[in-house]
Design a protein around this nucleic acid. Structure first.
Ligand SMILES: [Mn+2]
Ligand SMILES: [Mn+2]
Ligand SMILES: [Mn+2]
Ligand SMILES: [Mn+2]
Lengths: 230, 230
DNA sequence: CATTATTTTTAGAATAGCCTAAACTACTAC
DNA sequence: GTAGTAGTTTAGGCTATTCTAAAAATAATG
């Protein structure tokens, strides 16, 4: 720590770190080392160390005992990696016959290995998409994100028709479970009943009635049907 | 060196090392540390070190001062990586619009990052090809290679019609130079004149007459036209 | 506002890959 | 066969990334 060299933005660890900070930043002002350790599955001391080195590289702003925040450079880099990740995920489903639950782990590796040339080819082939195979927003080359107004079934009013807009889990088992119930992007859904105390939901999906646990439902986002009055 | 842990076959360094040994083994009985250092662009001591660790992992047979040879396991692994590399190269040209000179460097990274699932998808999509975009043999999943009888222009008799069967350079500049002259896989070629002392060749390619330097011509392999008497 | 509990950082260490400089072996030529 | 040269290995070191155990700081509690 007397001599500490700055991190380089092109390593796998640094890129995953940037993504993790970006994601956690959406929910909290500053991101704690513990939260990062949890998300990255590494020890807290490793996070502290990385935070120091990325501070020197001016990718994050780090204050001892008060967590981390992305700098402008850091955010740009994070969005670049997220763009890669999501373009790859979409491509795997669209052109290589992957099932949704298979794409995340593959993309987690490929995002670091692939060249800008490769990403450009994918973007071109997919006709510059803005949503990936989970329904998550793909940032543009300039970092712009076209967010939509989404809702979680657990907070969406009963009786309103909506469409599944995002299945935002990275866990293959959860995704398989949800898709097994009929939740796929674009499905028509309507909440029929909602049990209190974080109980299960009864949902009408494309005409079929199914039950879903509260916890697993938090990985679903729906979008109100266009044209349907609020 | 008192305690030395065996290498693990799934690291980038180890995989590239295996490929290098495999390639050099075609031309020499045992592969020297210097030859490997040269091919891998690392120092000779690094090669010695790696040789030791890969010996412990039973991937190579290494004898001090007498170089290295792949074990059966090592050869299987090497062929697996070569298969990946070449399927990726073919895919990049066929489906993603890459030019031949762009594929090698990309494949050199991707071969380590991609899953077996991914490779299976490529093989399927390309209809289980046996030749990559350079014209090199793609080993099967079981390691089998369907070699052809190829010739270098510099040793091929004058006046015989042949087809370009392989452009086996990894150097983008060389490939661009050759393709600029009209050498592409499948082109009709006929040697018109050959200068002595490793001098240039005059070649008829698809009707056009071009000159090629001796050195650069060593990266071309041709196959005698089928049906044309020897 | 003390005391405890939780979080975070420091200290010290390991591993894979790499390096340079120095020592050593093996082959080549008298 | 001995000297010289070319090729290899050993010795010693460095970096990035990870870890565990211990110390320190912050946050929560009564
Ligand atoms: Mn993902
Ligand atoms: Mn990743
Ligand atoms: Mn190649
Ligand atoms: Mn490689």
């Amino acid at each position: 720590m007397v001599t500490m060299r700055p991190a380089t933005a092109d390593s796998q660890s640094v890129q995953d770190f940037l993504k993790a900070v970006y994601t956690l930043q959406q929910k909290m002002e500053r991101v704690s080392t513990n939260a990062l350790a949890e998300m990255l599955s590494i020890s807290a001391p490793s996070v502290t160390d990385m935070a120091h080195r990325m501070m020197l590289a001016e990718l994050v702003n780090y204050e001892k005992y008060h967590g981390v925040r992305l700098t402008e450079t850091g955010e740009r880099e994070a969005l670049r990696v997220i763009r890669r990740h999501r373009l790859i995920e979409l491509y795997l489903v669209t052109d290589l016959g992957y099932a949704l639950h298979e794409v995340h782990d593959e993309a987690e590796q490929l995002e670091h290995a692939v060249s800008d040339r490769f990403i450009a080819a994918l973007a071109e082939k997919l006709d510059h998409p803005t949503l990936d195979s989970h329904g998550e927003v793909i940032p543009g080359i300039d970092g712009t994100c076209h967010y939509r107004e989404l809702h979680t079934p657990s907070q969406f009013p009963i009786g309103i028709k909506a469409k599944v807009a995002c299945l935002n889990s990275n866990n293959p088992e959860i995704l398989q479970h949800l898709m097994g119930k009929g939740f796929t992007l674009g499905s028509q859904v309507e909440i029929i009943t909602r049990e209190p105390f974080e109980g299960p939901l009864t949902v009408l999906i494309d005409g079929k009635t199914v039950m879903v646990g509260y916890t697993v439902a938090t990985y679903i986002s729906v979008e109100q049907d266009k044209g349907a009055g609020k």
